[in-house]
């Protein structure tokens, strides 16, 4: 079984597994967020992009903080995330070339159907958060420096709550992705802030339902940036820019807008809005 010839054959096989690395392929690495990936948007638009340009897009789905860091280290060609302030800093620090707004979706405040905080149907997310704290109702925070996490922190701040100071046993920071946070909330009948896309495609809802939605402060803007080739010479700037150009083109925007789950549109395009 282990004779010399089969050993050599096995080594050759192992080396063959390594070989594709040297082949130059027409592909880019895009570091993006779990919410974009988990929503299935990429599965919808990337085949269209590849059919047009022949460029394969490899998507890393990470938290926004990690996705930006991946870009900063030069391990991705394009960063596609949703945390406007951090994105602008990324460009200002010279790690990104230019930020392009692409689209937005919205966050929803999810909670148990029994609604222990009594916030169901409220239109003011700030008031809802205050009530969750007042009632000491369980709340799950991503706690992973993701775009959703920073959006959550901004909402507490806007509601006049210093969550770092005021959090108690009811506030649980789990340091994981959106799906994990939803799983945890579902298991513990807790409130949680989620992006709508992940929520719609999330399967293990248990007793969870949308408690608050539609507040303007819940809108979630996505931006895309080419990693600065001046910092990292390995960045495939032509392919990466081609992807960005396509996303903000009429064709790309239409592709994004046409993505629906259960008939619901998940992302609203606004590449033309310079303030987005």
């Amino acid at each position: 079984m282990l004779n010399r010839r089969s050993l050599i054959a096995a080594v050759a096989l192992g080396l063959a597994a390594i070989a594709p690395a040297t082949a130059q392929e027409k592909s880019i690495v895009v570091s993006s967020t779990t919410s974009t990936q988990d929503s299935g948007l990429f599965g919808h638009i990337l085949p269209l992009f590849k059919a047009k340009t022949g460029i394969e897009v490899k998507v890393l789905s990470q938290g926004t903080g990690q996705a930006l860091d991946t870009g900063r280290r030069g391990d991705a060609d394009v960063v596609f995330v949703h945390a406007k302030a951090q994105e602008e800093k990324f460009v200002a620090d010279g790690f990104g070339v230019k930020r392009f707004p692409v689209m937005y979706n919205d966050f929803v405040l999810i909670g148990p159907k029994s609604d222990p905080a009594g916030i169901k149907g409220m239109k003011d997310v700030g008031a809802a958060l205050k009530q969750i704290m007042a009632k000491q109702a369980s709340f799950i925070s991503r706690g992973d420096k993701s775009g959703t996490h920073s959006a959550e922190l901004n909402l507490w701040k806007a509601a006049g709550i210093d969550i770092e100071k005021d959090k108690g046993a009811w506030y649980k920071s789990i340091g994981q992705g959106m799906g994990a946070a939803l799983n945890t909330a579902s298991a513990g009948n807790a409130y949680v802030l989620a992006d709508r896309a992940t929520w719609i495609s999330f399967k293990n809802r248990g007793d969870l339902a949308i408690a608050v939605e539609g507040d303007k402060r819940l809108f979630n803007q996505y931006g895309v940036m080419l990693v600065n080739p001046a910092k990292h010479a390995n960045v495939k700037k032509d392919y990466g820019q081609a992807f960005i150009d396509w996303l903000v083109s009429d064709e790309g925007q239409k592709a994004i807008a046409s993505y629906k789950i259960n008939g619901e549109q998940l992302f609203y395009t606004n590449a033309k809005d310079p303030s987005a």
């Binding site: 779990t34 988990d38 994981q176 992705g177 959106m178 799906g179 994990a180 939803l182 799983n183 579902s186 992940t198 495609s201 999330f202 399967k203 293990n204 809802r205």
Partner: peptide, 10 residues
């Protein structure tokens, strides 16, 4: 790991 995080436990 991914399917778990998406809540698709089955």
């Amino acid at each position: 790991a991914l399917e778990t995080s998406k809540g698709d436990l089955p």
